[in-house]
Design a protein around this nucleic acid. Structure first.
Lengths: 236, 236
DNA sequence: TCCATACTTCGGTTAATATCGAACTATGAA
DNA sequence: TTCATAGTTCGATATTAACCGAAGTATGGA
């Protein structure tokens, strides 16, 4: 009863440690170049190239050429779902190594996603921008309104300069813990830097977790009308 | 940045054709002996024994001894979910080799997904529950409304008892053929059992396919306002 | 034009593992 | 006890595929 030999193909693709590492890191919704992924997986560029070709062939990854770079991202949300399901399995089982709780909560509250802010804080902030009429969202990216131009400018961002950069300006990035879109791209990255400069947030040492300071909580309420109390655990 | 080497382990286990075959056939929730599984996977008993040991070690299978037999079954619903998620992936992509076949049509119409109902029938039923105001769906699970409590109780389900169980109560399970969510969890399983008890559905021998009886068609229309004619092929 | 960078393809080596034959243990029946 | 069946472990073999060095293609910039 050779029922579904097909699932073996996809599973085998995910089953290689190097490829699993690439896929895992792409779960944050960001696209990455082949070289970045090679470094992340800890293999040589030519080995990575082989892996990436297989993942593409197996419809797990999609690729987009931009100049001499090739940006790889998960082919669809379904891929992310399958990866999630496998992560759940890996958490089961014997103790192995159960990553500790508090940091996990911190990560869900706020973390870096490549170079911008993700987690509950990132999503809430993005929602607030939309509510305030600063941003208009589409499936793949955000547009800054006239009101947004003024507000971000007042906050110390140079939008004109940001637009000149090659990378996409205000990409919608999918958050895997929140399963919601949030602001990425050049604008998201610039905001993240600005938040650090003003001391509103602090990166935790050697992790992707991000902490909101007292000044940050105050500032978010003042500037963007965000009540941090509503953000729940990890906000303190 | 060795993020999640864990998922590679589980995926690699599923990634072998022989093991994938065993796992696929166990998706129907039944337990099977090592020899049966060897035959299904098309390998010798000693090879199968090795595979089964690995699957057990990896917490994908659970085993129960009965006399000189060892009955293997999926270790948990989570394993079934991961397998389904991988089936969704395998369906994507280029044609490859899509075996149509009558059995396939039956499977797409209605089948067991571990211990609950999947396929077009499962999805339609779930949709009907939502339309009738019995369930409210979110990304990961369903909530039973007051109206739903009454209806399911009338149908012979003991929701209080179901809620007491450890497993999740009303999970949304993704279907590989329909690519839609349908009702799983303790509630989904209980409904499936109830449907069998009332003689509305019958399991096909040795497959995951499920047949809707004439009484079932009538009952679905009567109780839940579902017109089976709209379900297309395989309904007869 | 020339060079640097990003990425790929090719070829040979090496490590991992799926496979089965043979032999072993455990259970049930005569 | 003796035999048959279910399942296992062990050892040898063969296939697969991950890996990297070397060399190739494509793009961007000077």
């Amino acid at each position: 009863m050779k029922c579904n030999p097909y699932i073996a193909e996809s599973a085998a693709l995910i089953g290689d440690p190097a490829r699993a590492g690439m896929l895992s890191v792409l779960m944050d919704g960001q696209a990455r170049t082949a070289t970045e992924l090679a470094h992340i997986a800890g293999v040589s560029p030519q080995t990575a190239s082989g892996h990436l070709a297989k993942l593409r062939e197996g419809n797990l990854l999609a690729v987009e050429r931009q100049g001499r770079h090739r940006y790889y991202r998960l082919a669809s949300e379904k891929v992310a779902q399958a990866l999630e399901a496998l992560m759940v399995l890996s958490r089961d089982g014997p103790p192995r190594f159960r990553p500790p709780g508090p940091r996990d909560a911190q990560m869900r509250f706020a973390r870096t996603c490549y170079d911008h802010l993700a987690g509950r804080l990132g999503v809430t902030l993005t929602d607030a921008f939309v509510d305030l009429g600063y941003l208009i969202g589409s499936a793949e990216e955000f547009t800054v309104t006239a009101a947004g131009e003024i507000a971000f400018d007042k906050f110390g961002l140079d939008l004109k300069e940001l637009r000149r950069r090659k990378r996409s300006f205000a990409r919608r990035c999918l958050d895997w813990s929140e399963r919601r879109g949030h602001l990425g791209g050049a604008l998201g990255a610039a905001l993240f830097i600005q938040f650090q400069k003003t001391g509103w947030i602090k990166r935790q040492n050697d992790t992707r977790a991000v902490r909101l300071t007292r000044a940050g909580a105050h500032g978010l309420a003042q500037e963007f009308g965000i009540d941090v109390k509503l953000l729940g655990d990890g906000a303190a």
